[in-house]
Design a protein around this nucleic acid. Sequence first.
DNA 1: AGTCGATTGTGACATTTAGCACAATTTACT
DNA 2: AGTAAATTGTGCTAAATGTCACAATCGACT
Lengths: 209, 209
Amino acid sequence: MNEFEVLFEALKITEPTLQKEILTHGVLGQYPKGVFVVEQDKYIKWLAIVIHGSVRVWQEEEEREILLYYVNPLETCSLSLAATFKDYKSLVHARTENNTTLIKIPVRFVKQWSFEYQSWFRFTTQSFITSYEDLLMSYKSLAFKRIGERLYDYLIYSKELSENKIHISHKALANELGTTREVISRLLKQMEEEGRLKLHFKMIELINS
Amino acid sequence: MNEFEVLFEALKITEPTLQKEILTHGVLGQYPKGVFVVEQDKYIKWLAIVIHGSVRVWQEEEEREILLYYVNPLETCSLSLAATFKDYKSLVHARTENNTTLIKIPVRFVKQWSFEYQSWFRFTTQSFITSYEDLLMSYKSLAFKRIGERLYDYLIYSKELSENKIHISHKALANELGTTREVISRLLKQMEEEGRLKLHFKMIELINS
DNA sequence: AGTCGATTGTGACATTTAGCACAATTTACT
DNA sequence: AGTAAATTGTGCTAAATGTCACAATCGACT
């Protein structure tokens, strides 16, 4: 099954004409880690849908940055989607995290198809909704939880996406959570003493409780 | 011009059949301050669109609550909208803040119309997008700004909605911003000393700079 | 005028998080 | 093995915010 067929199946795109449109106008591409998919303050030309790999989406403001979310397989960046609908510049940066396969759709079709094809409508609507809910979770987390808990949540989440061993530096973790390296180091050390994880060089091993 | 005509004009609902549908199935109602429009964990039966007044939307969790947004005239609660599309229970509470006029649409039409009528599609899509952007702003604010600045932002925002005199207690302010009364009292006092505002009993007067 | 409950002011202190400094450790590369 | 750069550990201190206690003030109502 090729990438387009994967997409059609996952999004339940059954309309033959839409399939044909996507095959005609969509562009399949494979990108190494670290490639910018969209850049903040630039116009969006394509809506990217992740097939394999993942894309990190964040905002930058006055030297500081804030992680918004990751786009995982068969999802799209809903802020790009929003930008597509409003035809404005991107509010965010997005960059591949791994070797990533994308299908890119020119923006001029994205809105139009939403009104023409049920399945595409469902896809765009669901994207908005799930992104909104994700952001809401992050917001609540930031509002209610202390860094320690947010850190642990992040590790658990990363574990679910891969395995027990999370390959990341303390500095990078601090960046993801919007704090400083020292804070992360101290909290991790504490968790290690509590037996919840084990620290290695640039790698954290979670211990099943 | 009656409330429905206001709605049609604001949302650019020009399709005669949609107008007729809304007139047939929509319910116009006026509610005093403090009435629950939706309740967390309950099923949504109606999508409420505010005509006059405003609705406060928030989440509760373990005794604490978090303000999400206000629904102002000619807007709808996008979380209700999301719930409508996914047919699940409400994630939030919503309550009228003032004497408020609403038009309520039974949920079974909301999704269907989005695909049938351009104007309704635009309305629902725009609602999602603007809500998402609002939440994003709040998220950034929470992540980057200190309470003092968030407090001042809140006051400025309230002022824009009404006038220079904001009628609210320190306790209520603390609640809106997710902090405690003492913190608010101290910060307000400090701002008063800086000449940015003047404190009265249950009222704050902003000073134009 | 007097009472009561809600609101506001404020000092003292605790906790959480951030920032600085510097040492120790690990990896990569010669 | 030896060096450089990145990463990690940690003591000390500062800033922001939260908590407790209690007094003062205000408004509503008798």
